[in-house]
């Protein structure tokens, strides 16, 4: 019973908030361009479903490609600096600069570098930049998180640096890598959407473009419909990555 209530609680709250929203819009005659009632947003989702799904796929595919590239780059850099403490000290400040720089601020520059005719490259690059840090940070932390007694065991058997990284540090980093990828995936979507905004109306017709396009035409219900799809996509991706993390941790722990 408690489990059912736990599952239903967020749905009940959502339904309650939607009902208040619907009633408020209708009783106060709120103009549709300002705030359409949820029923109109639902209608817009239903009417635009094919194009919304296509736009969602555009954004999602960019985010997933960015996640893959960020994962490869972050792990490669983390492993290289794990082999050299001096290199780690050199790379850390640069990685921190990358972390604190807002993607919107560097988007125009990346758009120029990627070529005005190839906004999709810029969008992917920006999403990679956003997703890179949590994976890199998780990898670096994880590579230093090996059991000290296991470290001593590797010392005792005079393991080489490569053996230590591949046989001890990387496997020890798995829980940190899983967490880093989960955070990185969410940020990759945010990065892709922000980059689409920065790229404007050219090239990538993802969910951000749908929001911009509908906003320019004052079609607020369609804007909200794209936001709903974005939210659902985020929740589904988060749930999928949660499952992957749980499965990965169960494999790693052996139970």
């Amino acid at each position: 019973m408690r489990q059912v209530l736990n599952t239903l609680a967020p749905l009940i709250l959502l339904g309650f908030l939607l009902a208040i929203w619907e009633v408020t819009c209708r009783t106060l005659n709120v103009p549709a361009y300002f705030l359409p009632p949820p029923s109109e947003v639902a209608l817009a989702v239903a009417q635009d479903a094919p194009s919304l799904i296509a736009a969602a796929w555009n954004t999602l595919s960019v985010a997933l490609l960015a996640l893959l590239l960020a994962s490869l780059c972050a792990q490669a850099v983390a492993i290289v600096i794990a082999l050299s403490p001096l290199l780690e000290r050199a790379v850390r400040p640069l990685a921190s600069v990358l972390q604190v720089t807002p993607v919107v601020a560097i988007a125009p520059l990346v758009l120029i570098w990627a070529g005005i005719d190839h906004p999709e490259r810029a969008v992917i690059a920006l999403a990679v930049l956003v997703a890179f840090f949590p994976i890199f940070s998780g990898a670096v932390t994880g590579l230093h998180a090996a059991d000290p007694d296991l470290e001593r065991l590797f010392d005792l058997y005079q393991a080489s640096r490569i053996q230590r990284v591949l046989r001890l540090q990387l496997p020890s980093a798995v829980p940190f890598l899983l967490e880093g990828h989960k955070v990185g995936a969410g940020l990759a979507i945010i990065g892709a959407v922000v980059a689409e905004f920065a790229a404007g109306s050219g090239g990538i017709r993802g969910l951000a473009w749908r929001i911009l396009d509908a906003g320019n035409k004052l079609q607020t219900a369609r804007m909200l419909a794209a936001l709903v799809v974005l939210g659902v996509m985020g929740v589904v991706l988060h749930a999928v990555l949660n499952r992957i993390e749980q499965f990965g941790l169960r494999w790693w722990r052996g139970r």
Partner: peptide, 28 residues
């Protein structure tokens, strides 16, 4: 490889089977 240590905790790699844990120093 002529010195071995057993620590206070078993200190086994959780991601490896018992056999792979025992094989680890041999492989190293």
């Amino acid at each position: 490889g002529e010195t071995s240590v057993v620590f206070q905790a078993p200190t086994l790699a959780p991601w490896l089977s018992a056999q792979a844990n025992v094989a680890l120093p041999l492989e190293l």
